[in-house]
Simulated assay, not measured.
Amino acid sequence: MSVSPLSPAPNEARNAVIAGVVCYLMWGFIPLAFQQMAAHGATPWEILAHRAVWGVPMAILLVAMARQWDKVIATLRDKRTMGWLVLSSLFIAVNWITYISAVNSGRALETSLGYYLNPLLNMAAGAWLFKERLSGPGKIAVVLAGIGVVIQAIALGHMPWVSLILATSFATYGIIRKRITADAQTGLLVECLVLSLPGLAFVIWGMTHGQSHFLNSPATTAWLLFAGPLTVVPLALFAWAARRMPLSTMGFLQYLAPTIVFVIGTLQGEPLGLIRIISFGFIWAAVTVFVIGAVRTSRRKPHAPIVSEPEPGLVEPADEGASVDRPR
């Protein structure tokens, strides 16, 4: 039996699901790693700096494996593309520092809400900025999510700024990346390089002024070094899986990470009163409507390589036909 080139072989499809699950599991449990770094004295800004610095060697390895140095050089010489990548790097840095600060200060539930909102915000932004047609389920999902945010504000006593900053910074990042042609590995390396410059300066400043925790103990050093692979590996897995996975599958998997973070926040004792539960109820209802609409769309276009991205991330699938939302 022949296999269509647009349909991955059974083994490849299974491996794509495994890769997708692993990357979302890593994104889901990443708060525990950041909390361990904080337990060893590292501040959010220090964690961010090491995440940027040690992400570079891993990103270089990916480019070397893909043999894409010619694309990297071409991108570095293109002033317009570099300008956009610098801007996208700034937005992902905002996303990262907000996320790290929140999970290390007992606000994991707010980060969970942010990543539940992200795909819905992307959909709304597409309709507003790119005149994309918003489907019936899409409109219902956006309204339900809006109600959920308002109720969350009532529960907290203020707007859920952490959630909104995470969702909007990530959505803006995705919009910027849609405007440039840099492929997955190239864009990842360039963005890591851009962020590593201030990151390295911060690390050196901390070490020379007695503010660094990097060499305090073998455990602290290991955790901060781990920040690099922890950033790049799930992004690489996502980029590979996204090219081989239909929207109907990825649409479900992308909510695995915020669900895990929600459970982590709850188990760690973050307050979850009745009003807040109702708020998440509206968000989950919006997510359900969104996923059902996505599944119906994918069934009408069974071979379309359309996927939705995750966390807090830097990479986009190498398949130029894919539409993506990136995670943390």
Rank of each mutant, 00 (worst) to 15 (best):
E311W: 13
N104V: 12
E12G: 03
R133H: 14
W205F: 15
F91L: 14
L120N: 03
P31T: 09
P119L: 02
H303N: 12
T297N: 13
P234G: 10
F290N: 13
D319I: 08
L85C: 08
A33D: 00
Q268H: 11
A13H: 10
Q68R: 15
A19I: 01
I277V: 15
G126W: 06
I204C: 14
A19Y: 07
P305H: 13
K71E: 14
P234H: 03
F290K: 08
E191D: 13
A219D: 13
L197K: 08
M82Q: 10
I176D: 09
G106K: 08
I60Q: 05
L109C: 07
L195E: 09
T181L: 10
N104G: 12
R179Q: 15
H209P: 03
W161N: 10
M123L: 15
L193Y: 02
N15W: 12
A294T: 03
L113M: 15
F280L: 12
E320P: 00
A318V: 10
L32Y: 06
P327T: 11
A38I: 01
I176S: 11
G273S: 10
W27K: 00
C23K: 00
A9K: 12
G146H: 02
A219V: 15
K301F: 14
H209K: 09
L215S: 14
T181V: 13
G281Q: 06
Q254R: 10
A171L: 07
H158L: 03
G126C: 06
V287S: 06
G28T: 04
K178V: 04
T288F: 14
A38N: 09
H40W: 13
N15K: 12
I277E: 05
R67N: 14
V142P: 10
G321T: 04
L62Y: 04
A39R: 13
P160G: 11
G41V: 12
A39G: 15
Q268C: 00
V142E: 05
A201N: 08
L156C: 02
V103C: 02
G157W: 08
V3D: 09
M250N: 05
P312I: 12
A66P: 00
F202E: 13
L144N: 03
G269T: 06
S89R: 06
V94F: 11
Y116D: 02
A145Q: 08
N11H: 07
F34R: 01
A38P: 01
